[in-house]
Simulated assay, not measured.
Amino acid sequence: MKYKENIIVGISIGDLNGIGGEIILKTFEDARVLDFCTPVIFASVKSMTFFKNQFKSQINFHSINSMSQLVLGKVNVFNCWTEPIKIEFGKENTKIGAYAIKSLQAATKALKNDEIHVLVTAPINKHNIQSEDFKFPGHTDYLAQELEGESLMFMVTETLRIGLLTDHVPVKDIASQITPKLIEQKIDTVYRSLKKDFRIQKPKIAVLGINPHTGDNGVIGSEDDTVLRPTLQKIKESGKLVFGPYAADSFFGSNNYKNFDAVIASYHDQGLIPFKTLSFGQGVNFTAGLNKVRTSPDHGTAYEIAGKGIADENSFKEALFMGIKLFKNRFDYEYLTSNPLKKAPRNERKK
């Protein structure tokens, strides 16, 4: 996709009763952000005006009903609905969940149609979004269905990247889901993302064990010896710099993670607990492996502080700028791999 320097970033509003509206407004209060991107908030002007009044924002919205009406350099609001909505901060509400999905679906459609370059998703409530028409545990699974590629939850900062073999899976089902095929697929997705999205020529990847102490030679489980180690050896023989399995309990405390370009955890909490401990408020959830760039902040709806004006927008802002950076890196990579003797014409790009 060709683009102008001012990248168009679509933003799904998330749970209207959470902190999404507040952190979005706080991010764009600094007008300099518009030098880097043109935002399109998928919600409604009525809803965004409610947030503007609640948080005493000075932002002027440009209301649009189709992407053809977008104005570069403005904070555009795409009207996904026109009716007024009763917003009650901090309350879980299935009707509010339905509006979060309306926003996500409209933003995803624009992403698929190349009307936006990047998608940044504000937090949703995974419980109140469930319906007969939407039965996904979260953004990642929905986007994996709608977009091309093999999705992977990749938690990233400038210095730390953690991918997951399994994500929203009950603990009792983790070991049975980790198969040689899954391991190869996830490592390949991380490897390709490190090269394409992060411009790392020869990625070095660490993999954490499934069981405590990687099974202690079968005393605490056999999966590390029978499934994980043989698969990692096979991947090494293909030429990838993949190491492990490492015992997860000491891997981060010893700073061993600093020796690698990415770490792959076996399951959700094994990866996200250290990630959020080391980088909370600065981390970004990037859905790697898809044919489009999607990022989100590393936190949830934060009902307990919603509406109070004290939400920290830094993780959302990091998600915004990380999405822009990843899109540019991916554009350059694809251009250079298809034109190996040329430099990416950054100053000549057009939408």
Rank of each mutant, 00 (worst) to 15 (best):
M322W: 00
S315R: 01
A288V: 04
F321E: 04
T301S: 15
G289T: 01
L320G: 07
P297F: 00
H299D: 14
L320P: 06
E313F: 04
G289A: 07
A319P: 08
K308M: 13
L320T: 07
E304R: 01
L290G: 00
F321A: 03
R294N: 12
A288R: 04
G300A: 13
N314S: 15
S315G: 14
S296V: 01
K308R: 13
T295E: 09
H299K: 13
A288K: 01
I305C: 03
L290K: 02
F316G: 05
A302D: 03
K308G: 06
T301K: 05
R294K: 15
G307W: 07
T295P: 08
R294V: 13
I310Q: 10
A302M: 07
S315C: 12
E313I: 02
A306V: 00
F321D: 07
T301P: 09
E318P: 00
A319F: 08
E318W: 02
T295W: 04
Y303N: 08
I305Q: 07
L290A: 01
S315P: 12
G307F: 03
T295H: 05
A311C: 14
K292Q: 11
H299L: 13
F321Y: 11
A288I: 02
V293P: 03
F316W: 10
A302E: 02
D312H: 15
K292A: 07
K292Y: 05
A302F: 02
A311V: 12
E318M: 14
N314V: 11
I305L: 09
I310R: 09
H299Y: 14
D298M: 08
Y303P: 11
N291P: 06
F321I: 01
A288F: 02
E313R: 01
N314T: 15
F316C: 10
A306T: 02
V293K: 01
N314P: 01
E318L: 01
P297T: 03
G300S: 13
I310S: 14
D298S: 12
T295K: 06
V293G: 05
K317D: 04
S296I: 01
S315L: 07
I310N: 11
K308S: 05
N291A: 10
I310C: 12
D298R: 06
G307A: 09
A288Q: 04
E318K: 07
R294F: 10
A288S: 10
D312I: 15
G307T: 10
D298C: 12
I305S: 05
S315Y: 03
A302L: 06
F316H: 07
G307R: 02
A319I: 10
A306K: 03
P297L: 03
E304Q: 12
E318Q: 15
E304S: 15
L320D: 05
F316D: 03
K317W: 04
L320V: 15
T301I: 13
F321R: 04
S315F: 04
E313C: 08
A311Q: 07
N291I: 06
G289P: 04
K308T: 12
V293L: 09
G307K: 08
S296P: 04
F321L: 11
R294Q: 13
G307V: 06
L290F: 03
K317T: 14
